[in-house]
Structure formats: structure tokens, C-alpha cells
Amino acid sequence: MLEVINGFLLAYFMILCILSALVPQLGRTIAGCYSRPSSEERMIWGEIVKLKAEQKNVSMKDEFAAYSKLQRKINKLENHLKDNSQSRRTKSLAIKGSVLIILQVVMGLLIVASVIWFRREPIVVLKGDLFPLTTVLSYPSDMPNAISTHMWVLISNVSVRSLLRPVTS
């Protein structure tokens, strides 16, 4: 029913389509490496935890001045931590967006260049007559009942994205 003419191109375009579908996950993984909390943020968080534990040992009624002094220190550190984490999130979002755009552009250019380079190569030949679709499926190629690289990439991309949708969501 199906005869593979160019197995290398079949595998090559399948891998490209899979990588293209996984670009958002790759972008998140790469951006995640740059958005970890700094040692300063971890140190501030440890100080807040220590001050809160110390504050629990102080009676609010009996030693109000000491309690409120600890509370002011905690509030100051929390505000500083909040500012640092907000700037880190902003930087992380910018990195994630940039990495995602770069990966999508690279994958898009690679796929387009490959399709143009191998435009006349048929990937597979279907046995039987596909009368109304013969010319559409094999467009730049002259082989009857063949599936050209253009159509193979289109079919593969749609198939891979629909198969990976539950995994990538």
C-alpha cells in the first residue's frame, strides 16, 4: 500500500516536525535555567524564616516593642524579596520570550530551507490511484501517486502536533 522511496528524508522531516512541535517545552526548559532564585534571595528567605521563628517566641502582649521591631524587620525583608523576585520574573519572561522566538525562527528557517532544497524529491509512493489528489500530493515531483516533501511536511506537522497535544498541554 505504501512504498518508501527516500527513508532518510522521511525520518529527517519527521524529526524536524517533532522538534518544531516541542519548541515551547524546549524554550521553557532553557529559560528555566536562567530564572532560578539567586543566593541573595535564598539568604533573605532564610533570614525571614529565622525572624518569624524568633517572633513566635516573643509575646505580643508582654513585649510589644520587641515584637513590632521584629515585624518591621520581617516586612522590610519581605518587601526587598518581593522586589528582587519581581525583577527576576521580568527578566525570566524576557529570556523565555527571546529563546522561544529564536527557536521558532531557527526551526522555521530549517524546515523551509529543507523543503526548498528537497522540493522535487518524492518521499513515499502510494499504490493505487488517487485520481483527484494525485497532482496536489506530488506537486513539484513528476512521479504519479507520490507524496512530495511539501505535502509530507504538512501531513507530518499536523499529525505530530495532534499526537503530541496531550503531552505538551
Rank of each mutant, 00 (worst) to 15 (best):
V99F: 04
L93N: 11
G97V: 03
L77M: 13
G108M: 09
D83P: 01
K82D: 15
H80F: 07
R89P: 00
D83R: 14
M107C: 12
S85C: 10
M107S: 10
E78F: 04
V106Y: 10
L103I: 03
R89E: 12
S87Y: 08
L93Y: 10
K82M: 14
I102P: 01
I95S: 00
L77V: 05
K96H: 07
G108T: 04
I101A: 13
A94R: 12
S98E: 09
A94G: 08
L109T: 04
M107W: 05
H80V: 13
E78L: 09
S98N: 12
R89M: 10
V106T: 11
V105I: 11
V99H: 02
H80C: 05
D83F: 05
S85L: 11
L103G: 00
I101W: 07
S98P: 01
N84P: 00
K76T: 14
R89T: 06
K96D: 04
H80W: 03
H80I: 12
K76G: 05
L93C: 13
S98Q: 07
I95Q: 03
S92L: 02
K91F: 13
S87T: 09
L81V: 09
G108W: 02
L103W: 00
S87H: 10
N84C: 06
N84D: 07
E78I: 05
L109P: 00
I102E: 09
L103F: 04
V106Q: 07
L103D: 01
L77Q: 05
I102D: 06
S98G: 13
V105S: 07
A94C: 09
K91E: 09
L77D: 02
V99W: 02
H80S: 10
V106P: 00
G97M: 11
I102G: 08
L93Q: 13
T90N: 11
K82A: 12
I95W: 02
I101G: 06
D83G: 12
S87R: 11
I102N: 08
K91A: 14
G97L: 08
